[in-house]
Amino acid sequence: MPRLKLTLEYEGTRYVGWQVQPQGPSIQSVLEEGLERLLGERVSVASAGRTDAGVHALGQVACFDTRRVLPMKAYFMGLNGMLPPDVAVVDAVEVPEDFDPRRWSLGKRYRYRVSNRRTRSPLRRMTHWEIFAPLDVEAMRRAAVHLVGRHDYSAFRASDCQAKHAVREVRGLAVEGASGDAVSFVVEGTAFLKHMVRNLAGTLVEVGKGRRPEAWVAEVLASRDRKRAGPTAPPQGLVLEEVFYGDGPPARTAGGSADAEEDEG
């Protein structure tokens, strides 16, 4: 039975998130409905990670098993014609039968986008956090250095996060852009806690606004206290850009890979 890996792009504004939920449409539900129309059978789709309501993706990864054998172009030309305009398949490949999009992941890259114009932007309002006060980008860059490495990120997890522990490895945290225009926080790591990237962004913005000194970020990290960190940035600025894979599952180490309840949303 073939196992297919799909790479998805979506604009998450009108969705309750990745996972099927009773209160509204999800990315998973519209994808499974489209696949049922294409394949003539109901399939269950697993993803590399959950994204929350309003969060977007350029490189979400999903996989499923099917009895049907179709050419790969069916998942572009065929399936995309059955999906809503804010969800699309951008790549499709057959993978080994034991491929797991979550457990085989070597890490992910997220981008959190801020619009720092002096006035509101109709074109950015669903894809950026709009902050009208000038941000000190250089101060945020210097502060971000404290957040890179292997640490306990308890200060940056959501209160309802179900992760068994908060040890994660952030490989890089770049602050891109310029004050008065678009600014991005680009975070790459092995795995992420619930709302971790949004909490990192909200904390760095406190430094960018001049409300906190750069060294405060290191103090927050060391405290492991969520109440000491900045606010959770709104969901619309977050994009899952890429999920990284090798030839097989990575070695299992504490914090090195996520399970179903351990992911950024």
Rank of each mutant, 00 (worst) to 15 (best):
E242K: 15
R103F: 14
V61E: 08
E9V: 11
L106A: 08
E9C: 12
V239T: 13
F99E: 04
V145K: 14
G246N: 02
W18F: 12
E219P: 13
V114A: 10
P22N: 07
N116L: 06
A92E: 04
S121Y: 00
A166I: 02
Q60F: 08
L70N: 10
A251F: 02
C63V: 02
V207Y: 04
V30A: 07
A163E: 10
Y75V: 02
H128D: 04
R3P: 11
V145S: 14
G17I: 05
A74L: 14
S29H: 02
M140P: 03
H151I: 06
Y112C: 04
R37K: 14
P96N: 05
W129V: 03
V137K: 08
R109G: 00
P2G: 11
D65A: 10
R198A: 15
V186I: 10
L240W: 05
K73S: 14
L200V: 02
L31Y: 00
R67H: 07
E188C: 07
K164L: 14
V30K: 00
Y10K: 12
V217Q: 14
R125E: 05
A92M: 01
P101D: 00
V95G: 05
L39E: 03
D136N: 12
L8I: 07
E33K: 13
Q28L: 01
Y245A: 01
V95T: 07
H146A: 13
E188N: 04
L35M: 03
T232Q: 15
G172F: 00
V30M: 07
R252F: 01
G256N: 13
L58A: 13
V220Q: 13
R118C: 04
V20F: 03
L123G: 08
H151D: 07
R37V: 09
L38A: 12
L193Y: 05
Y112S: 02
T127K: 03
P134K: 14
K164P: 02
A251M: 10
M196N: 14
V61L: 11
Q23S: 13
G256E: 06
R111C: 01
S154N: 12
V148D: 07
F244L: 10
G149T: 04
K5P: 12
Y15V: 05
S105Y: 00
W216G: 15
R3W: 06
V148M: 03
G78N: 08
G78D: 04
D259N: 08
K164Y: 09
V148G: 12
H151S: 07
P96R: 04
E11T: 01
R124Q: 11
S184D: 11
R111I: 08
A133L: 14
V20E: 11
F99W: 03
V243E: 14
L38G: 07
Y112R: 06
P250T: 08
E36I: 04
D52A: 10
S257M: 09
V20P: 05
V197S: 12
P234D: 06
A53P: 04
A260R: 15
V205C: 11
R252K: 02
S159W: 14
A218Y: 02
M82S: 00
P235H: 12
P134W: 01
G208M: 04
V20R: 15
L135I: 11
P71D: 02
A191R: 15
A74S: 15
V187Y: 00
E94K: 04
L106H: 15
R68N: 08
F99M: 01
F132K: 09
V89S: 11
